[in-house]
Amino acid sequence: MTDAGAGERVCGVCGRALPASMLRPVAVVSGAVRATLDRDEPEWAHTSWICSDDLRRARQTTIEEMIREDHGELTVLDRAVLKSLAASGTVTVNPEEVYDKRLDFGDRLADRLAGFAGSWTFLLSFAGVLVLWIGVNSFALFSAPFDPYPFILLNLILSCVAAVQAPLIMMSQRRQEEKDRLRSENDYRINLKAEVEIRRLHEKMDHHLLMQWDHLTRLGKAQDEIVRQLRAGSGADRKG
């Protein structure tokens, strides 16, 4: 244990002498964190101070055990949330930006083609081409139609378009599923962190309520003692 100098106090867990700004009174430690310290540091001083590093480490361990108890083995997303809590950072990411960074030229081209193939512009344009094709080859506009009935060339073109369009749509759907997965992971991280933060707030509120109740109890006892002393003094004056 390090000896404390002027303006310093000793941490009850690690025993380091640190400035008062880097220490917290043990009274502010909630019950769950205190139980973690009792288990991991059985010899820590309960009536002293605790440094910010040890308090943060104990809180991190408590949160990790809570998540492990609720969800089982920690996943990559759970560890990302724990890391964010330890760093007091955010876990929110923009799925669109993450998804766009993973796309190459072929993926972008396939998405554009699939988007165009599923639009009213493509549908109306393709319907117009079909009507024009059938009309030109059905009526006697030319002495020798280039694709007479039953429009074998048109069937071949339609088959080729369908053969190319189906993989494009499937690739686009697969990438949409990937984008939905990124959104779901982002929502999970946000919800998990919000749940942990709400639990911590509840623990802090309960802890502060208990501290206030203890303080009020001590004040009440002190007031009762003062009243008894005043009554005793008043009785002695009357007898005198």
Rank of each mutant, 00 (worst) to 15 (best):
M22L: 07
A163V: 09
A32S: 15
F116Y: 07
L230A: 14
G233Y: 15
H208R: 08
R34K: 05
E64F: 11
D78N: 15
L103K: 10
L209I: 05
E96S: 15
T75E: 08
E203V: 11
N186R: 09
G240I: 09
A87G: 13
R238E: 06
L37G: 00
A35Y: 01
R39S: 07
A194F: 15
F142T: 01
V98T: 14
V196Q: 11
V164F: 12
H215S: 04
S88T: 08
Q173I: 03
D180H: 05
V136E: 06
G128R: 12
N186Y: 15
G106N: 13
W133P: 03
V161N: 06
R56A: 10
D53P: 01
P150S: 04
D100I: 12
I134W: 00
V81E: 15
E195N: 10
D104L: 15
K101Q: 08
I157G: 05
T47G: 00
K239L: 09
Y149H: 01
E197H: 11
W133G: 05
A58P: 05
L123R: 14
A127V: 15
L113K: 01
E43F: 09
E177M: 08
L130C: 01
R56Y: 08
R102E: 11
E178S: 04
K179S: 02
D187F: 12
S30W: 00
Q165A: 13
H208V: 08
E41M: 01
S119K: 08
S84L: 11
Y188C: 09
D40Y: 01
D206H: 02
K193A: 07
E97T: 12
I190Q: 07
E65V: 06
G115I: 02
M1V: 14
L182R: 01
R175G: 00
G5M: 05
A166M: 11
E203Y: 06
R79V: 10
V129C: 13
P42Q: 04
R24A: 14
V164R: 15
A17D: 05
A194I: 13
L153P: 07
A80Y: 13
E97Y: 14
S52P: 13
F142M: 03
R68A: 14
G12H: 00
I169K: 03
G5P: 01
F142D: 01
R16F: 02
A6V: 10
H215I: 03
V81W: 13
V136T: 04
L168H: 03
Q165L: 12
F146W: 05
L210T: 03
W120F: 05
L113V: 03
A194L: 15
C11S: 06
A162K: 03
L158H: 07
L209E: 10
N94V: 08
S138A: 00
G106K: 12
L219I: 07
Y149M: 01
E73A: 07
G118N: 04
R199K: 09
V91E: 14
D214Y: 00
T75Y: 11
S30F: 02
T47D: 00
C51R: 01
A144H: 04
H202P: 12
E185W: 03
L216N: 03
R59D: 12
G89N: 07
T92P: 08
A236I: 07
R181F: 12
R228H: 10
V136L: 07
G135D: 06
L109D: 04
V98Q: 11
L219R: 04
H207P: 01
A117S: 09
A144M: 02
N155A: 14
L153E: 11
Y149P: 00
L85R: 13
Q60G: 13
M211T: 06
S159V: 13
